[in-house]
């Protein structure tokens, strides 16, 4: 059997007594490109944040490659929602991407030439090299998303968690981003994406998790991405034409 990259056991998260995630068990095999889908308020972002330790769960545990998450941070990269930061912050695109190197540097040590080179490479990968000295508030929404992606690429992790990377980007950027994600999968990385557009799930992803406070289903897209699971997750009679 293939290696399990991320294993979540009995994860429960609540905001003020209201459960947001209820008893989630999840196994994500290594090397998949997985979408997390579900309606608004289903706890998709919360699941990622709880796995990454940004939110404290009431119960449950997370292991990365069979070891506790805290000891495995170096293998994990995170792309937060674009709207979670203030883009008027006084800094440049290159500087934001450099932040991806801070984790491997540790405390106090400053990024040097080596780190800068890695950041420039990542910028080139996302097609943003010519914007490296641009003040970040001068970037479009799609460009800001690419910068966030580049920052995660710099971390050179094995597992990538991305919170709605396609939100508010145009078609060109969407294609550029999905190509990078597919390249990551080709390189054997595991990519977990909070996703909203159900139509593109079969085209973009090979693995999917249906979430609505509880886990509805998880598995290969071709096996479980069907009307039955969609209806269970979204609560309405959902029909999509799936190209198999």
């Amino acid at each position: 059997m293939e290696k399990i990259a991320v294993k979540v056991d009995d994860l429960t998260v609540a905001y003020n007594y209201k459960p947001v995630l209820w008893d989630i068990d999840l196994k994500i095999p290594e090397g998949v490109l997985m979408a997390i889908v579900g309606p608004n308020g289903a706890g998709k972002s919360t699941l990622i944040k709880a796995i990454l330790g940004i939110l404290k769960p009431i119960a449950g545990s997370v292991t990365i490659f069979d070891k506790p998450y805290k000891s495995q941070r170096k293998h994990v990269a995170y792309v937060p929602q674009k709207g979670s930061v203030d883009w008027d912050f006084p800094t440049t695109a290159l500087d934001v991407v450099m932040m991806g190197t801070y984790g491997s540097l540790g405390w106090i040590k400053r990024p040097g030439i080596k780190e800068k080179k890695r950041a420039l490479e990542a910028l080139e990968k996302v097609g943003m090299l010519s914007f490296k000295n641009r003040q970040i508030s001068q970037l479009s929404g799609g460009q800001q998303q690419r910068i966030f992606l580049a920052r995660a690429l710099v971390q050179d992790a094995s597992i990538y968690f991305m919170d709605e990377p396609f939100q508010g980007v145009d078609a060109t950027t969407e294609v550029a981003i999905i190509n990078i994600l597919k390249e990551l999968r080709k390189a054997g990385k595991t990519v977990v994406v909070v996703h909203h557009d159900l139509q593109t799930v079969p085209e973009y992803f090979d693995w999917v998790t249906f979430l609505n406070v509880k886990k509805i289903a998880t598995g290969p897209v071709k096996d479980i991405f069907n009307d039955d699971n969609l209806t269970k997750t979204y609560g309405i009679n959902y029909k999509v034409s799936i190209q198999k």
């Binding site: 994990v76 979670s84 932040m99 405390w107």
Partner: peptide
């Protein structure tokens, strides 16, 4: 001067700084 990069990343993106292990 010592914690410059730590301060910067905390100001810009606190959650991300936490995932990096700070």
């Amino acid at each position: 001067l010592l914690f410059w990069k730590e301060f910067k990343i905390l100001l810009f993106d606190k959650d991300y700084a936490q995932t990096l292990g700070f």
